[in-house]
């Protein structure tokens, strides 16, 4: 029987993974809270089967992404537009900082991606190899490379568009 204490300690160390998934997949605070709770619960349920063959962080990524992609969101809460307004760190930064503007634009561009592409980008940002991303996604490393190229091109264009609009 896995111990709750052990699980909470591991989760506490790796909770940034859940925050990343929640921030990228949900736009409103309430939705993020719901998804955070759901991922925590699903991870706790699945922890009985965690044998330590993979790193806890990799295992948690799988659970978190699976939960976020299949999450059944209440329609009434669905936002019309993806924005950076509800992300805490964006609110407190200074306006007209070029790097900040670029990060904002890129964040918005990532927000417009499909659920699958978001997952790939997230794993890419974590420096997982194409092989590891492929294993997690259930596709070949070649497929990951092709998708990643397409995503990067699209993000560049979309981020530029957001920069011009700002």
């Amino acid at each position: 029987m896995p111990s709750e204490k052990e699980f909470i300690a591991l989760l506490n160390e790796n909770q940034r993974i859940i925050h990343k998934v929640c921030n990228l997949y949900m736009d409103s605070h309430a939705d993020r809270e719901d998804l955070f709770q759901e991922i925590t619960l699903q991870a706790w349920k699945a922890f009985t089967r965690f044998r330590g063959e993979a790193k806890f962080s990799t295992w948690l990524y799988r659970i978190a992404l699976n939960t976020a992609i299949t999450f059944f969101r209440k329609e009434k809460r669905q936002p019309d537009l993806y924005s950076t307004e509800t992300l805490p760190d964006f609110r407190i930064t200074e306006a007209h900082d070029p790097v900040e503007e670029q990060v904002k634009a890129m964040y918005m561009a990532i927000g417009e991606l499909s659920k699958i592409d978001k997952a790939i980008v997230m794993l890419y940002l974590e420096d997982y190899s194409h092989q590891e991303i492929g294993d997690m996604m259930g596709i070949t490393p070649n497929n990951v490379a092709v998708k990643m190229n397409r995503i990067k091109t699209r993000l560049k264009e979309q981020a530029q568009k957001h920069m011009n609009q700002a």
């Binding site: 925050h19 964006f90 670029q102 940002l125």
Partner: peptide, 13 residues
């Protein structure tokens, strides 16, 4: 923007 994005996304509310 990898590092910046990683840092921002990991921020909790």
């Amino acid at each position: 923007l990898k590092q910046e994005l990683n840092q921002r996304l990991a921020t909790d509310h």
